[in-house]
Amino acid sequence: MLHIYCPYCEEMREEEEFSYSGEAHIARPTDPESLTDAQWGDYVFFRTNPRGLHHEMWNHAAGCRRYFNATRNTQTYEIHETYKMGEQPTVTGGKP
């Protein structure tokens, strides 16, 4: 059971209150019509799926119902930080 800090409620809550929404910081293409099938498929389906640091979206479904981001280690399950939508992660493991 993960304990997750909701940056909006400013409280540490149990995992069951949240729902997972996958990799974060994937911008929707501004002009989908101009993309090739390969580019569109890449946007919709392909993910980095790393073993280690992962920036991901969570939704506080049974709380404030807002989306936020988390930086979590997918190997140790340690959550390094949670931050509001629109903000950038501070823990990046040396990567931009």
């Binding site: 890449d42 392909f46 993910r47 799926n49 790393p50 073993r51």
Partner: peptide, 18 residues
């Protein structure tokens, strides 16, 4: 489960989540 890690070694991405 480690396919994504293997793919990254070869510089490709897969439509997978582990």
């Amino acid at each position: 489960g480690n396919s994504g890690v293997m793919a990254a070694m070869a510089g490709i991405r897969l439509p997978l989540e582990s």
